[in-house]
Amino acid sequence: MESVALDPRDRGGKVQPLLIARSLKKYFPMGRSLLGKRSYLHAVDDVSFSIGKRETLGVVGESGCGKSTLARVLLDLMRRDAGELIFDGEAVGTFDGISRSEFRKSAQMVFQDSYASLNPRLTLEETLTFGPVYHGVKRAEAVTRANDLLHMVGLEPRRYAAAYPHELSGGQRQRVNIARALSLDPRLVVMDEPVSALDKSVEAQVLNLLIELRQRMSLTYVFISHDLNVVRFLSDRVMVMYLGKIVEIGPVDAVFNRPKHPYTLGLLASRLSTDPDRRIDSAPLSGDPPSPINPPLGCRFASRCAFTEGVCHVRTPVLTQQASDDGHSTACHMVDIGSGHSKAAQA
């Protein structure tokens, strides 16, 4: 990471993470059982991590593991059931911290569905000036900035400022979504699968744009994707989720080259190569993830893990630092010395 002291908005300095998430929880209430007991879907369950300034944190995990819910909770777009958010040293939404509206200006989101997230009745210029004007920027100033943004994301304002979303291709719409997220000059941008709905031949253009903008605007990204190659390519650190919990987090190199959690291992080994001589001949993991509704006690991966032992069914493994001291942590009894797992001693 380069010097971050130049940003006038910086409060906590270099070592202060831009965002700290502490014990975030989001449970969705489901039906009641015959005995009248309410069941809950544990979408995000006690998730803690931090993101450094100008860092990109990749988030991976299977469908339904809680990535989008985490994104919404992180940006305060959805109320959390528990936990706190600390933005550059200030607690979000507390009276001595940063106000929620101030936070929402500094932290923006790019949604997966580029079409549904644009208002079909607004021109691109109107789309890009809406937020700033709402937040008190003068119209003329907002228009100038909208045109700059269009130019920056590769849509010539002369041709596109007056265009409507339906006149654009998927890749162009995603550019507009990115421009809109940047219209309030945020410090943090959370991207929820920003390229997965795009054509393969257009994906690289948008990835290049994201890299360029990150550099140019000193942005911090949370980058959610199911494409492990893309996450490795774009991120400094990566977080692996399984059924609402972090199972492994650390620098990209450490997690990709020295994965410790059996789920991370399985996920990485499931990556397909474009070389027909490097086919996979047996599935790295069997079974599907279990239901997130009232998940069982213990490790949530136990039903699919090849190393499950008694302790895995009774105690929930917690994130434990690796000896390497590079922030690489894993939630598995095998890496937790003294957990009672037979493989733990060797870890």
């Binding site: 291709s169 393969k200 031949s201 690289a204 990835l207 190659n229 490795r232 390519f233 990209v252 474009t274």
Partner: peptide, 24 residues
């Protein structure tokens, strides 16, 4: 060729990709 060249694959992190210009 363009699809192969533009895909992230195991390219070094943060390098610019050889994107195919335009759209289908």
């Amino acid at each position: 060729k363009g699809l192969m060249a533009s895909s992230v694959g195991d390219k070094p992190a943060g390098a610019m990709l050889d994107a195919i210009p335009g759209q289908p």
